[in-house]
């Protein structure tokens, strides 16, 4: 089931949580809503679910305008950040809840509910735990029960709010892969909210980056990472530093030197060059490189992370250098900028 969101505005009193958001999600797609806290990503998810009512705008499920359909009738599977499992019900009762509350005619028999719940329990790899209560499960297991419960109603779309937010790093990684597998097997249109860019890039078919109630950019993980359209997206996806530059004569000038970058479409005057740690390298000899001084060096996984200051401009940023390269704080070493993105200031 494809979802279309049209011009959603949501005001909370004076502050706007969403300022006219539109989003198309194709059937079977896995989309991440990525943004810092307060960006409106959870509000958007709740509006799609019908848990919140937008101030204006529409939500379409396929051809149907679902804007005025209450949450009970939208047939969505919603997984809450806190899981919201019913504590007084067993795992099996939790999963079967959505089927057991259906009205007379549409409600499957008790045996059928049980059979389908057991099937889902198997899908989320928790067979044997059907008689446990949520209080007796680990965080990762509760997360899986919450997903199974949402899937049991055969939802038109699956919505997950910070699905791995409350879990520790190791479990997060495992569940990420596992969720991807489940998605491939069941083919549900899925939208999930996260503030973790790694999670969004690794898991989603497409990522929508939200900031201050607006979608800054939407695209595949490759597009988002390699061609960020706004300084915010650049900053939010991965580490980055900004260096003041000048645009003049169709070239980008840093500390009086033109750098290897086209200034296409940029107006003359001051601009900002955004760099990631791997966009800069130490140069063997001065030549066309920029003089710089090393402020500190740290070991960071397979590389060495050096904090440097360009000698001619007030700019401090970080470089990823090969671990084999020995550099010391206080040393003068020229650097060469390989890539980067220039945005107007």
């Amino acid at each position: 089931m494809d979802i279309r969101v049209r011009n959603i505005v949501k005001d909370y009193g004076r502050t706007a949580a969403l300022e006219g958001v539109s989003l198309d999600i194709a059937s079977g797609e896995l989309v991440a809503l990525l943004g810092p806290s307060g960006s409106g990503k959870t509000t958007l998810l709740r509006i799609i679910a019908g848990l919140d009512v937008p101030t204006s705008g529409q939500v379409f499920f396929g051809e149907e305008d679902a804007s005025h359909t209450p949450v009970q009738d939208r047939n969505v599977g919603f997984v809450f950040q806190s899981y919201a499992l019913f504590k007084h019900m067993t795992v099996l009762e939790n999963i079967g809840f959505g089927l057991s509350v259906r009205d007379g005619k549409t409600r499957p028999s008790a045996g059928e509910i049980r059979r389908r719940s057991m099937e889902l329990l198997d899908l989320v790899q928790l067979s044997g735990l059907e008689k446990r209560y949520p209080g007796q499960l680990s965080g990762g297991q509760r997360q899986r029960v919450a997903l199974a419960r949402a899937l049991a109603v055969e939802p038109r779309v699956l919505l997950l709010d910070e699905p791995f937010g409350a879990l520790d790093a190791k479990v997060r990684k495992d569940l990420r892969r596992w969720l991807r597998e489940i998605h491939e097997r069941t083919g549900h249109t899925t939208v999930f909210v996260t503030h973790d860019q790694d999670e969004a890039l690794e898991l989603a078919d497409r990522v929508a980056v939200l900031n201050h109630g607006k979608i800054e950019q939407i695209g595949t993980p490759d597009t988002i990472y390699d061609r960020p359209e706004t300084p915010f997206v650049f900053r939010f996806i991965g580490e980055s530093h900004a260096v003041p530059v000048m645009v003049h004569d169709g070239k980008v000038w840093l500390a009086g030197q033109p750098i290897l970058m086209a200034a296409g479409g940029l107006s003359e005057g001051p601009a900002a060059l955004h760099l990631r740690p791997h966009d800069v390298e130490f140069a063997a000899h001065a030549g066309d490189a920029l003089p710089a001084r090393i402020l500190s060096v740290r070991r960071s996984g397979p590389t060495r992370r050096a904090e440097i200051r360009l000698s001619d401009v007030e700019a401090v940023f970080e470089i990823d250098a090969p671990a084999a390269l020995t550099v010391k704080p206080g040393e003068e070493r020229p650097v060469r900028i390989l890539r980067g993105r220039v945005f107007p200031v």
């Binding site: 679910a49 019908g50 848990l51 949450v71 009970q72 009738d73 939208r74 047939n75 969505v76 599977g77 919603f78 809450f80 806190s82 919201a84 499992l85 019913f86 809840f97 959505g98 509350v101 259906r102 419960r149 949402a150 049991a152 109603v153």
Partner: peptide, 16 residues
């Protein structure tokens, strides 16, 4: 209200 929201999203009415 999260538990109630969960129940509603699973299709339960107000009384249920």
């Amino acid at each position: 209200t999260t538990d109630e929201e969960a129940a509603l999203s699973l299709g339960a009415g107000g009384l249920k």
